[in-house]
Computed example of a mutant assay.
Amino acid sequence: MPTLEEELLRLMTEETARLHAAPDLVERVVSRSRRRRVRGRIAALSASVAVVAAPVAYLGASTTTATGSQVTISVTPEPPAIDDTPPQPSEPPSLGDLGDGMKFGHVKVGYLPERLKWSGWSVDFGDKYTTAYFYEGDDPGSYRVQIYMYEEESVQEVGDRIAAYRDEGDGEEVTVGDRGGYLVVQNVGEDGMKGTPTLFLRMGDKQWAEIMFSPTYAKEFRETGAVSAELKKIAEGLTPNP
């Protein structure tokens, strides 16, 4: 059964992959969890040491005096060492070298806004995978456009998320060529940002794309509707890559 830290690593790694969050997010969460667990270990250890120190503690070797009487010596065992080494998060699987990044997994990218290039970053969870694009000279952990692909059973996740947005009255149905999609701004108000403009695109019964603009990148498009127009252009250029 996975430990609490392993489960946190798995959940936070997946969320980090989806949103391309700060690279040290997992480490921060695990560090807090580890500190709580170590404090619990110390409390339990203190209680166990108190019991060991009692008169009925472990009996050890005996020695004989010059008069022939025996004296029994109580031996208090050393307390167990506390493993204070934090687990090291493993790197999530990647898609490898994507060259210019215009093909990855089962999709081809036909259009990107000017100056964008492949970031060199990707994550591959099999039926879910993603990569991102940024400007030359941007920080390696940043992105401007991210494309997340959902295939096979994972498309249900997209359906559930779109259904939740519909229920809340967020976003709108859109048509991109002959394909349906859903346009919405996600994570509004988080971290003081204005949200992540996103277009979900249905590419087939078992293939959906999620195209995201970072809030920072979206600020570069000042004209009304410019971000939505760019998202639709990227969506139009996405085609299956058998």
Rank of each mutant, 00 (worst) to 15 (best):
P89C: 05
G101F: 08
D97L: 03
G68Y: 09
G101S: 11
E91A: 15
P89F: 02
G101R: 11
A81G: 12
S90Y: 00
T72N: 09
H106P: 07
Q70A: 08
S90V: 12
P79N: 04
P80E: 14
Y58M: 13
I82N: 03
M102H: 14
P87C: 05
P92K: 04
S69K: 11
K103Y: 02
V107M: 08
A81R: 12
Q88L: 10
E78S: 12
G101K: 11
S62L: 03
E78T: 13
P77C: 05
I73L: 15
Q70H: 10
G60T: 02
P87N: 02
S69F: 01
T85S: 13
I73W: 09
P87F: 02
G68D: 08
A53S: 11
M102G: 07
D100H: 07
S69T: 13
A66M: 07
K103C: 01
A53E: 08
I82G: 04
G60V: 01
G101A: 08
T63A: 14
P86Q: 07
P55F: 00
E91H: 08
S74I: 00
A81N: 03
T65P: 00
Q88D: 12
Y58D: 11
T85V: 15
A54C: 04
H106K: 14
P92H: 04
S90G: 12
G101V: 10
